[in-house]
Write a protein that binds this DNA or RNA. Structure first.
Lengths: 249, 249
DNA sequence: ACGTGTGAAAATATTCACAGCT
DNA sequence: AGCTGTGAATATTTTCACACGT
């Protein structure tokens, strides 16, 4: 995974020991996988599956079963030994753990090609998010309707964030504008940002940034492809779950 | 990270000890960051900066300097003690390491909203990739021109991949079609896939898959946001670079 | 002096393997 | 008999801290 793109997440061990105030620490790597497990579980639920073993859920999520069980153990004990997990129960637990019960409002800033595509992306709605505001700086776009929402001017950002109680924003503006937009978002009270602009965003420690860098993903693939081409063996040995790669210089 | 989304990368320690056949192993976590360093370096180069210290390059890339130096050390020794790194030299080295010298041809499968946006994404071209083919299954799209390229039918995929020597493909089709498209790509000889469909792709071990799951990214942010809301302290303590998060159940 | 390069230490993450519950 | 939950072992990644070259 893109591993650890977390910017700043405060660590806080256990105060608040009220009624069943049971506390756990969930490793970051586990959190990143919970979303995948949830997706697989929802799919199974729709197919009418009532129970899954760690083995089959792991297969559906593309991980091994030991990792899956370890991950789920951080949430608590929701499986039944000898049987497996109830799809409904586990779905609900992960859903709750990810904080999705509140159908969060999201603001989308930047309505270029990518922004427009994101605005219409059904996956957001179906997986717990509601795009509550579209924002851009271009006079040509402001006031127009995109996928059922009127585009607002970036100057009314603070107002919109406040009105819609937005905590999460998606930034899809050009790189040069990203830090400025980010600063405005932070000033408006947004605490989580998903950044598609190919820039490093600087934020205060209470704000969390994740980035999606499309070209970087291809470059990583390119690196591995390069290795393969250099050594045209491979392909024979099944199951080669290595994490390092030999490089010839 | 999205940490370790690698599917299958064969590990091969050092045979091939020919002339200067110096070999290294580059950790996966490092590879994922090289793309970010490269971006920062290119930006500095364009600004006319000739030399950088690990400290300032790290700042530009959003990591700490120890990590940056360690990462760069896997490529070899391209810095000068007491001085720093030459921007041009380091840019060239990372570029080469990522296998970008050959301006790789990429196929894009799926021209829905997201696919169309990706087809027009300038960042691919500027960072080493050439979109060489657009492919879709919809009769309404096949034959039309999108960002300067004619959309081809998915049935001619193998032919196109061969003709354009495509090793890397971007999959932006609906989830239900993704595995089928993936299988066709693999059969055609594609060895690296960037998957935007919210599904786990099953591939043979010589093929490398990375995924971008947009809703999952938001869910991860949601998780952290949920923690913040639960404990409205934070904000005071600067610099809290923790990787774990307390959970109240 | 300064800043890289890197062993060694610490922190995280993954995998193993099996005790324990149904 | 089957499958979860988890300590212990292993692997990977990050951070520290300082020797070394310029």
């Amino acid at each position: 995974m893109q591993p650890g793109q977390l910017n700043a997440v405060g660590e806080h061990a256990g105060q608040r020991s009220v009624a069943a105030g049971d506390q756990r620490v969930i490793p970051e790597a586990t959190v990143a996988r919970l979303a995948t497990y949830l997706r697989a579980l929802v799919g199974m639920g729709e197919l009418g599956v009532a129970t899954v073993s760690s083995e089959s859920l792991a297969a559906a999520a593309g991980v091994n079963s030991a990792k899956l069980r370890k991950d789920l153990s951080y949430l608590g004990s929701y499986g039944v030994r000898g049987v497996g997990y109830e799809v409904a129960v586990l779905t609900e637990q992960i859903h709750k753990t990810l904080g999705l019960h509140q159908n969060r409002a999201v603001a989308l800033i930047g309505l270029g090609h990518l922004g427009q595509a994101l605005a219409g992306y059904a996956g957001f709605a179906s997986r717990g998010f509601r795009i509550a505001a579209l924002i851009d700086a271009s006079p040509a776009l402001v006031g127009t309707q995109v996928h059922g929402l009127i585009v607002q001017h970036v100057d009314s950002l603070a107002e919109v964030v406040e009105r819609e109680s937005i905590a999460i924003a998606v930034v899809a503006v050009p790189a040069v504008a990203a830090q400025d937009v980010c600063d405005r978002l932070v000033a408006s009270g947004v605490t989580s940002i998903l950044n598609f602009a190919p820039t490093v965003l600087t934020v205060p420690p209470h704000v969390d940034v994740r980035k999606v860098d499309l070209a970087a993903e291809l470059q990583i693939l390119s690196f591995h492809d390069n290795r393969k081409a250099a050594r045209p063996d491979c392909a024979g040995s099944d199951a080669a779950p290595a994490t390092k790669v030999a490089v010839v210089r």
